[in-house]
Design a binder for these strands. Structure first.
Length: 208
DNA sequence: CCAGAGATATGCT
DNA sequence: GCATATCTCTGGC
């Protein structure tokens, strides 16, 4: 069953070494599998991402070369997780991109359960809409910061072969008056409630 | 529907 | 002390 095998294929290491915004776009529709210590697992499909472009990006935690203990995973090679706690309350999952020494990452903003994605009604429950809710739903904490995205606890796979349209827009949050904030750094799946129920993304493009 | 408060980690000034 | 890559609840229109 080539088709089935294709869907469960782990994303290769080189997937994470490309341009970060491109990786953010390419992460849409991919399967994220979280396996818990008790052996159970949850599979979700990524529907919203946001790119953070490293030392020159004021919104990035590594802006201006910051290299604190919290962000060390971002300085490592792509293909690993960077998880941080925000507002003392929520956790946010990032996919580290590029090579070691180029501290860029993609924030995973929303996902939907795989079965709902395959139903094509793809509205999806709002269970995983928002980076904090996603981490809460998948039991992702800072304990996973630095973990491989090709490991036993967290896996990124090619995902189901299902076409969708892509929405692009500026990053959420403060406008840093820098160029990066105005660029298309946010990517979402058109028609997905987990995306559209939040903030409007503008601009539609044909996806794959 | 929209605005504001509150939870309180992390890092900067 | 202050800001932030968040979310939920509350109260007002």
């Amino acid at each position: 069953m080539a088709r089935l095998r294709q869907g469960k294929r782990l994303l290769p290491a080189r997937f994470f070494l490309r341009d970060t915004a491109e990786t953010a776009r390419e992460l849409l529709g991919r399967r994220l599998v979280r396996t818990l210590p008790d052996g159970s697992s949850v599979a979700v499909i990524v529907v919203e991402t946001e790119a953070y472009l490293g030392v020159g990006d004021r919104a990035a935690h590594t802006w201006n070369g910051r290299r604190t203990p919290r962000v060390l995973p971002m300085w490592g090679p792509g293909g690993h997780a960077y998880v941080y706690r925000i507002y003392g309350l929520h956790h946010c999952l990032n996919v580290v991109t590029k090579r070691a020494g180029e501290p860029e990452a993609v924030l995973v903003r929303a996902a939907v359960p795989e079965d709902e994605w395959l139903d094509r009604s793809a509205a999806g429950s709002l269970r995983f809409s928002g980076p904090g809710k996603l981490c809460a739903g998948l039991a992702i904490t800072t304990a996973l910061s630095g973990a491989s995205l090709r490991g036993p606890e967290l896996r990124l796979e090619a995902g189901p072969d299902r076409p969708f349209d892509v929405l692009v827009g500026p990053r959420v949050g403060v406008d840093y008056a820098g160029e990066a904030a105005a660029w298309p750094l946010r990517f979402g799946v058109a028609g997905c409630r987990a995306v559209t129920a939040r903030k409007a993304l503008s601009g539609s493009r044909p996806g794959s």
